[in-house]
Write a protein that binds this DNA or RNA. Structure first.
Lengths: 381, 381
DNA sequence: GTGAAAGCGCTAACAA
DNA sequence: TTGTTAGCGCTTTCAC
């Protein structure tokens, strides 16, 4: 294996010995300089850097990882979806990790693929990552992985993984509760909920928050419709809500569904917010520009990512230190034009619902419904 | 350096020698089995696999990379934005790469940071990637990087990087042209353009396609307004278009801007599509559910990613083979409800524009404008 | 402050 | 079909 470079001319990449020779020092000294270690005189440091520059030296990370047992790489398991939440989280994680001196490896789990997280984690472990981030995992029934690196779970309880697991993420439950309370404060007798897919912890938390807000005021808990985060599922749900006839306020578990929902409501002749108020969740960038502008709960994705990576890096680098508490990231209800006090009388449908499947008030058509939990006394309007 | 494992008990991870010993074969044979090489008897293979299983053996990729000079990793440089396009591309790239047996490293470039791509590429090279994907780069003036691995440029000409550069991406120009022609076919005398930031190749291509469509029919090219992809910038532009008074059709360079645009138009009392038609670009998932549902050009992100990775992997593994031609991915104009024939008379503003800054017809207020290129004779309506 | 020597766990080239 | 022998380019340990 002669060191002359692979195909066609390009000479082999310079190694630290080459730099050392040129700078007239030992290879170890080059290593010291590039790792920012102490005990290198300024003069030597300068010479080394200069020689490296001249040679176009680039450190070989595979060798470094092999020798040190650490790769300075964090693996990220994320859903393969362009949804705003997961995408934002990924960006935040990359940034925070890079700031901490770590590179990122990404593996997407295929949607609906059972055991996907386990397989993804396994492949990352094989790549030799120092830590793992599992972003917005779907509950696959506690995946007992034998992970020997710290794990950060974003947007879910630290249930997953082993002993060295930390979690971050704003308590979606309290956010959902605040969103629901906003509607109640406006005077709505109760609030309907368009939930996310219940495999997602985030969706369950939001459902829980909604329930809590309603229970706290002794309000009825109407049947929940479950969507899949998409505007399309929001649209389907919206048709059901519209045909129910008694809906004045809906809390949707994300903005996309809220948008689909509003469209269905509008098509059915219901005005938002005059007849029905809608609040979303996430504050996606276009939320302020849809018609009507959406009242929604802003999620501090960046803060969550930063906080989580801070925890993870600490777990990697100081495994024995007390796990620092997660900050509570700032949270904000953005009130725009999709919420208002309820109509004084039950909403009158202005024009016949287009393509409506049923004229009855039955709520049991089509998509999945959760049983109404709790049983506050029905309130008269 | 005793092999007893780091802190507190957990024994060192098993190596291939350990597996070899247990299976009663040489270390090299274990290597052969795990690399799927030929010339291993089924019996031996079975014993090795069994031993590995019992030991919980996992291959060390750092060592593999060091010894082989290849990391089976592709580096991806992408914009740090949750925009639908880049996010979708990233997901597609990850999938395609994984299918080809490569892992992914991701580095985001900070927006507006000059030299960001160069720095990102540099850091990936240091990580020892076998190839690099640059997704939707911003034109920074041909960044002459000394890259010694193949580079795939997505959504831009293969200008970047060195000799071993391939490119993929649907010709945005022809798509933009088709979008514009759709409007022209509907009967609009001319079509206005709300462009993306001109640092992006994608934005320039769309502008070019719009120009080409107009020129081909000898139509006037109205001044262009330049946005930044956000709904907010679309909204700002929409106010300008509204106050211009003579706009009947707008082609927006992406869906987000189109949505902001429609809102501004609506606020100004213009109806979409009765008074003004709008077509977007991307077909983001909610495009079908905004009000009105958006006519838009669907981008085949998955096909582009697949095609690109195929090219890149070929360049990595068979550097001497003829670079296979990029497929032309399927493309589709999705006609929904935001486009219609022009009004028979110039649009009448129904209600006074809210918060309008000027009552004149001047188009020169506020945001950036490109000079009108070409000079087709003004057409009378 | 600096250097010499000994690996890290694997693949490559060659033997057998 | 299988084994042997050298490294890959760093970090680590310990000596100076």
């Amino acid at each position: 294996m002669t060191r002359v470079g692979g195909r066609g001319g390009s000479p082999a990449a310079p190694r630290s010995v080459d730099v050392a020779r040129r700078a007239g020092v030992s290879q170890k000294t080059v290593s010291r300089v590039f790792n920012g270690e102490r005990y290198v005189s300024d003069e030597v440091r300068r010479r080394v850097l200069e020689a490296a520059e001249e040679l176009g030296y680039r450190m070989n990370n595979a060798a470094r990882a092999l020798a040190s047992g650490r790769s300075r790489t964090i693996g990220v398991v994320t859903l393969g979806t362009a949804l705003y939440g997961p995408a934002s989280l990924l960006i935040g994680v990359e940034r925070a990790a890079r700031d901490a001196g770590y590179a990122i490896r990404v593996v997407n789990t295929l949607e609906g693929e059972p055991g996907g997280v386990a397989r993804a984690v396994e492949s990352l472990l094989e790549q030799g990552v120092d830590g793992i981030v599992v972003s917005e995992p779907i509950d696959e029934g506690s995946v007992a992985l034998s992970v020997d690196v710290p794990v950060l779970v974003l947007g879910a309880p630290a249930a997953l993984g082993g002993s060295r697991t930390v979690a971050a993420g704003v308590g979606a439950e309290s956010l959902a509760r605040a969103a629901t309370e906003h509607l109640l404060d406006l005077g709505h007798v109760t609030v309907h909920h368009l939930a996310g897919p219940q495999g997602w912890f985030a969706a369950r938390d939001r459902l829980g928050g909604w329930r809590a807000a309603l229970s706290a005021r002794g309000r009825e808990q109407p049947p929940v419709i479950v969507g899949d985060w998409s505007a399309e599922s929001g649209y389907t749900a919206g048709r059901e809500f519209a045909s129910a006839g008694d809906v004045t306020a809906v809390f949707a578990a994300n903005d996309d569904m809220a948008i689909g929902l509003i469209r269905a409501l509008t098509e059915a002749g219901l005005r938002v917010p005059e007849d029905v108020s809608v609040v979303g969740f996430d504050d996606i960038p276009i939320a302020a520009y849809v018609i009507p502008p959406l009242t929604t709960m802003r999620q501090p994705f960046d803060a969550v990512a930063n906080d989580g990576i801070r925890l993870l890096v600490q777990a990697i680098e100081k495994p024995d230190a007390e796990p620092a508490p997660a900050h509570d990231p700032p949270v904000e209800l953005v009130v725009r034009a999709s919420t208002a006090p309820p109509p004084t009388r039950p909403p009158i449908r202005k024009t016949p619902a287009r393509g409506r499947r049923t004229t009855s008030d039955s709520r049991s058509s089509g998509s999945a419904q959760l049983p109404a939990a709790g049983d506050g006394p029905p309130t008269t309007s």
